[in-house]
Write a protein that binds this DNA or RNA. Sequence first.
DNA 1: TCTCAAATGTTATGATATCACATATGGAGC
DNA 2: GCTCCATATGTGATATCATAACATTTGAGA
Lengths: 162, 162
Amino acid sequence: MDTIGFEQHDHKRCVQAAIAAVEAHCETHRLHLTPVRRRVLEILLNRHSALGAYEILDTLRVEGLGSQPPVVYRALDFLVSHGFAHKIERLNAFIACTHPGQDHTPAFLICRRCDAVAEAHAEPTKGMLGRAASDSGFVIEQAVVEAVGLCPRCHEGAPSCA
Amino acid sequence: MDTIGFEQHDHKRCVQAAIAAVEAHCETHRLHLTPVRRRVLEILLNRHSALGAYEILDTLRVEGLGSQPPVVYRALDFLVSHGFAHKIERLNAFIACTHPGQDHTPAFLICRRCDAVAEAHAEPTKGMLGRAASDSGFVIEQAVVEAVGLCPRCHEGAPSCA
DNA sequence: TCTCAAATGTTATGATATCACATATGGAGC
DNA sequence: GCTCCATATGTGATATCATAACATTTGAGA
């Protein structure tokens, strides 16, 4: 399953690849990946845990890219609306998408101990939820699927998953 | 599927039955359903859409049951932690549980037009999410499943789903 | 070069949630 | 009945998350 992000990986390379994929997508879809938007995406990509909007803003402020909340929220709106990032409702935080440009319903595995977040795929129209929806005539347009628990490393009984 | 709440029903009776079920559960589990907690539950039960904490607080304030945010948040903590109510993360709002006392993972169908919310059951350990979790060694303890879309009535093309 | 839409800068405020500490309530043991 | 203590509530202040409103800048195309 290539969507699980708990294992070790070449992080620098994964960031570069993600940026490249987003750039390509913006190119073909005539979207503006402006400096602020690009930088917010980079900040998100540099972590595999979710970041609060104000944490991102702190970094932008240091770099002179903006100091007020609307700056970061607008950049996040752009990234989220085009599927380059996702909001984790449970955490009121944001995370870069691990497969940008592809249409998908993300599902998240959130470690409550080390705060790592892995993205998987959800199938909101299948399973009991999909059946309940179709039985009642509800039309699902969008879904939030977020599981909280322990990631493999934190589950091992290690004192910390740093 | 008795967990779908979009159809018409005897609302007064459903509220009474829910209160009775919660009372019974508190009785057997030595939990205190204090006046504030009971009233918050009633306020939630009187709707089939989610209510924000401050909306609930407005009602409590009028009734002299408390006027500060911690009052309502503490009552909600009690209700949510014992499964008598759920938080809808997507809406930052709360809703009474439709089958209190039973251990379950709720899933919600949220109408974006009329704000009605129906509760269904989720199976977080099944489907692709469960497989992704077990494949990676993630242990799911809790899950948020919330679908946004159109309820049967709003989907009919009616001007409103009042 | 002009124009206009898109993006950004900035001030202020709204909405959601918690902390910290004081006070009250109610049952267990004496 | 009284004391002790855990639980619950009252209250003021504040933290955290998010958006409204409007001015200014930028950049692609006429």
